[in-house]
């Protein structure tokens, strides 16, 4: 009963992880590439962790819940990394298939790379 469920969860998780990385290679520009890994991977690792919780719970005859911690952590941090990455890409004005929105505010100068690291005089 448990074993087919575990196998299905593991295969689904690994497949989603694979598809996330495949998206990283196949999709045409950075903003679309961002969608593959940050999410498909999260669901993939999520189902792998559920499988792990079930497996160790069944093995030890109790419940194993610490996998929930990693899952929760990934579900909280993945959107933050995705948001920061896309913000950084917008800041660098990376080439995009979709029309880029106008730059936020008029005061920031347009840059092509990161500003020099020794900007602060200390």
């Amino acid at each position: 009963m448990l074993e087919p469920l575990l196998s299905a969860l593991i295969l689904a998780g690994a497949a989603f992880t694979f598809i996330g990385s495949l998206g990283l290679v196949r999709l045409p520009d950075f903003y679309t590439r961002l969608h593959g890994p940050t999410k498909a991977t999260t669901l993939g690792v999520g189902s792998l962790l559920i499988a792990s919780a079930l497996y160790f719970g069944a093995r030890d005859g109790g419940i194993s819940l610490h996998e929930v911690l990693v899952t929760l952590f990934l579900f909280i941090t993945a959107p933050v990394s995705a948001h920061l990455l896309s913000k950084a890409a917008l800041h660098l004005r990376l080439r995009s298939l979709a029309a880029l929105p106008p730059e936020e505010g008029g005061e920031k100068p347009r840059r092509n790379g990161p500003p020099p690291a020794n900007r602060k005089p200390e």
Binding site: S21, L24, F30, R33, L34, A89, L92, L94, P114
Partner: peptide
């Protein structure tokens, strides 16, 4: 680009 590489590391 640099964000592409960061995304790859993240993955």
């Amino acid at each position: 680009s640099a964000p592409d590489r960061i995304l790859a590391l993240d993955t």
